[in-house]
Design a protein around this nucleic acid. Sequence first.
DNA 1: CGCAGCCTTGAAGTAAATCAAGGATTGTGG
DNA 2: CCACAATCCTTGATTTACTTCAAGGCTGCG
Lengths: 247, 247
Amino acid sequence: MTNQHIAPISSRFLRNRGRNRLSAEEVAALEVAFGGVRAVAARKTLIEKGAPVHDSTLLIEGVMCRYLDDQQGHRQLLGVHIGGDFVDLHGFPLDRLDHDVATLTEVKIATIPRERVMALIARFPNLARVLWRSTMLDAAMHREWIFRLGRLGAQGRVAHFFSEMETRLRLAGLANDNGAPLPINQADVAEACGLTPVHVNRVLRILREEGLMTFRSGVIEIGDRRRLQRLAEFDDSYLYPDTDAAP
Amino acid sequence: MTNQHIAPISSRFLRNRGRNRLSAEEVAALEVAFGGVRAVAARKTLIEKGAPVHDSTLLIEGVMCRYLDDQQGHRQLLGVHIGGDFVDLHGFPLDRLDHDVATLTEVKIATIPRERVMALIARFPNLARVLWRSTMLDAAMHREWIFRLGRLGAQGRVAHFFSEMETRLRLAGLANDNGAPLPINQADVAEACGLTPVHVNRVLRILREEGLMTFRSGVIEIGDRRRLQRLAEFDDSYLYPDTDAAP
DNA sequence: CGCAGCCTTGAAGTAAATCAAGGATTGTGG
DNA sequence: CCACAATCCTTGATTTACTTCAAGGCTGCG
């Protein structure tokens, strides 16, 4: 099923998060609800904590993140988003956001005004379920991040982070034979894993020397998936790959 | 507004998570959808990871938790639930659960069969939004737990955990002048905060000696809320207290 | 060429884990 | 009502993983 022609904006969402769950009519209604596609530079905060939610933002291309700052201004990443993810859909039922949303790379995004989301889900109850489900997938990832930070050591955390990202990129159809492209730096990984950049660097060296994986120039390459996932205590079922992804 | 008479099962949910957002008709429909109230002993796993979701469970009284096990069987708590919380509503759009759900104390619960939830939200789109919103509040708490584990030291983590629980208990109308009752032990706190029980004990002693708070016999007492919240970097806005709680 | 951003490595310091032992509290059966 | 067990809490000594501080080396780009 190629949605690319009939749904240029939402095709990756459909593949990544909503596959086989929307009718042609629903896809068409969703597609026309978006405003135009917009480009945003890397390292820009798009939405500030506390801001009222007027739109929902779909990430089409690039990498974004959500984060909370601590008192010294150090970030804790709460999630990393890739093409096909809604980055602030959870703000729709909550009215305002409880954290910041920023770009990590240059991105292309499209937005839907809040009222149009309201109208869409009133007209298509099934679409409401698909959108709810998408926010629940983010919540499932949140839970796994809690596990990662609460129970794993530095090597496990980094291994888990990259296991998740590589799996998601693959499920979204964004990985290829050369690896999975994730153009972020070691400091970003540190902010995701609750570690210092220095220590992430040391951990990456160990993982590289052990042949488990490499992360160089923004590309993830898995060397030994089995051992990497054992170290990470990683089980992809929380990404619901069987019910949600490309075949 | 006292829902206790007209909605004996869902009254605390309404107060805690859905206040002023449901019509009398919606409340009545929700109330009759529940099966009977059931008691469960302390420290029982109610729902296992991977289990298909046939019902949604509302916690009426007592304390429950969600958790993931690591390879040595040590738990990481993902959330703690009090009266008025749905403990597995997120499983409704996801079909199966990605973690375990267990009781920490004796509890009273009520369940709604999945099909009835489907029928209810088809009939009352507003109820769908209120339920979605409730799951989004859990996600907001997840995010704060990620921050807690990723950016705070042991004292901050424990202070943050108890700040959250005390606030939630108060918003749910479950706290009183003697403090906020949370009948769990230090090992549970350790599993929530990603620490060892020994270290939680040491941290609690410091917090007690500094006059910030005490936690004894399952009761939280806040000594100096301002300083506790500064230590915890705690800001209650993620609990949406203005829009959601008792007046 | 020279600068900026990012990565890498070393040495010293520290927060929390681990290991170990006892003490308090609650509940229970004689 | 007391003996005893079970559970939970408390404290000390040692070890360890990660941070912090510091410096230098790549790589790509204007």
